[in-house]
Design a protein around this nucleic acid. Sequence first.
DNA 1: TCTTGACCTCAAGTGGGCTTGAAGTTGCAT
DNA 2: ATGCAACTTCAAGCCCACTTGAGGTCAAGA
Lengths: 143, 143
Amino acid sequence: MFDISELSRASGFSPSKLRYYEEIGLIRSAGRRGLKRFYEDEVKTRISLISLAQTAGFSLGEIKETMGSEGRPDLDRNVLAAKADAIDVRIKELTALRDGLRHVMNCTAENHLDCPRFQRIIRVALTKKQVDAKRSKRNPDKG
Amino acid sequence: MFDISELSRASGFSPSKLRYYEEIGLIRSAGRRGLKRFYEDEVKTRISLISLAQTAGFSLGEIKETMGSEGRPDLDRNVLAAKADAIDVRIKELTALRDGLRHVMNCTAENHLDCPRFQRIIRVALTKKQVDAKRSKRNPDKG
DNA sequence: TCTTGACCTCAAGTGGGCTTGAAGTTGCAT
DNA sequence: ATGCAACTTCAAGCCCACTTGAGGTCAAGA
């Protein structure tokens, strides 16, 4: 068991952020000594996960929905599958963007937006986005 | 040349968003007919790029900085390289998170946070983050 | 026992990224 | 020439994810 400043140090999250996350139900303190919150080790893994999910572009609401409360580790497989698929799409977009940037670094075209290779790289990611958007219009419940 | 509603339809960005982007200098209209803005094809590529970069987790400020104004396509190679590296880090984190999610879907551990395989998957991404943080402390200008 | 500093609460403020609404203007079809 | 749908500006508002500040409580060490 450790207090909020130790958790803050260990996680890199400010105390106010930790309190805020508790307030919205994303994390839990194991209990109090007087007013002071005390935490168990488990919360560190949870915080790591939150941090990762934020990097992935998920809102705190989505993260909460996906992780559930600490007492409910039996997550909905469909939700998890959908999130994993969403991440796959994002990875492809990021890969295209990164390749585009790296290409621009070595490209001699006067205006990079006109470079055919660059445009092709970008179009790959866009096509994926559009396909996805169309599919979710035809089939809204599959997100 | 096309007007704002056509650009909106083509890009999926609302007119207000397009005007906002112009206001903050992210895009430019090619000119006006009366009050109405008109655009050239080039802006579509630019918008695609913005969309992609947002997905990658960059703020509009960073995007502006990286893309420069339309009149300055000669971007700073170091900035581009740094962004590309940042994207690589993010891709690794996303990959770890996705693998973690997919594992949880098939994992029978009663509490997934306790599953050693899951923890290992997560730790991979965290380690990268910490390494990166430490490097940028030792060497702040290399961000 | 008394101080002190790290914790606490709760309300208000901040910044990013837009959207909305009111009020005005205008290109274009009739 | 006229109407009107679609554009325009500008200010204010909204949601998210926090941070800040004022004022209060408490555990532990001198």
